[in-house]
Simulated assay, not measured.
Amino acid sequence: MNTIPEDSINTGVGESASSAELRFENLYRTLRSRICLLDYEPGTRLSEVALAKEFGVSRTPIRRVLGRLELEGLVEIRHGVGTQVTEIDFNYLCDVYELRMELASQLGLMSPLPPTEDLLQRVQATLDRASVVAEAASPRRLFAQVNIEFFEALMELIGNRALREVLVMLFYRSSRMWPFLMREDVIAMEAELFCNEIRETIQLIESGQLVALGNLRRRHIAMALQRLKLMSAENGRVA
């Protein structure tokens, strides 16, 4: 069982507020990851009681986490019904992708931060993991994981906090589209395209061309959206 001491979530009992918030953030990230990796599929009902038992906390912090996830469009809380993971609204998520595409170009324009050696190592690590996606035991899941890791690494280049917050929210709202739509027969091709994107990204980071990196991100998001639309039309999973 995952054990998060209750006083680590509810502040003021033998622990600083900052430490309690860190533990709350870890709980939030765990549940968000499960939703985005489809461990909790669309429509799954989430029990506050079961989650509180799993993580060793009261229902209060669980309710708080679920409220945050609802604001981000990942769950829906209905009075008298409970909490459910939201369904995939493909048309709406296409709108999200288009907004992400327009904002991506701001990466190198709005208070960009200088890349560090640690950042380059993290991006290189995503390339190493992406290169073995096709041979993985669960390729679709690994692809989704690496996609998240790559995105999180790039967020370290954004100094404008408001832009970063919006990009993070939009990314996680739409990230389920890949594991939800991607068929087994296209995983190898998508993984290779992803590897090429990461290689280009590394080159631009190493040369300090962050404006060009923002334009690269915009272009790849646009191309990814077109491929997702094609997948949706071909497999009929989303209306």
Rank of each mutant, 00 (worst) to 15 (best):
N160C: 05
I198E: 03
L109E: 06
R34S: 10
L27Y: 02
A17G: 04
L66A: 11
L213D: 03
L99N: 04
V123A: 04
L27N: 01
P179F: 00
L109C: 02
N196I: 11
E15H: 12
T11Q: 05
E54T: 15
L163P: 01
G12E: 10
I221S: 01
H79K: 13
I187P: 02
I9P: 00
A130C: 11
A50H: 09
E6M: 10
V49R: 11
Q226T: 08
D128K: 13
I205V: 12
G73L: 06
L99H: 08
T60K: 14
S175H: 02
S207L: 08
R78W: 00
S138Y: 12
Q145K: 13
V211W: 01
A104G: 01
A224F: 03
A130Y: 14
N160I: 00
D7C: 07
R32E: 14
V133C: 02
A239Y: 10
G236W: 09
Y97A: 08
A17L: 08
L93C: 04
E117C: 08
E184G: 04
G214I: 00
G73S: 09
R217D: 07
R129M: 03
E135K: 15
L27R: 04
R129L: 05
I9R: 10
T116D: 04
R218G: 00
F143R: 06
A104D: 06
G73D: 05
V211A: 11
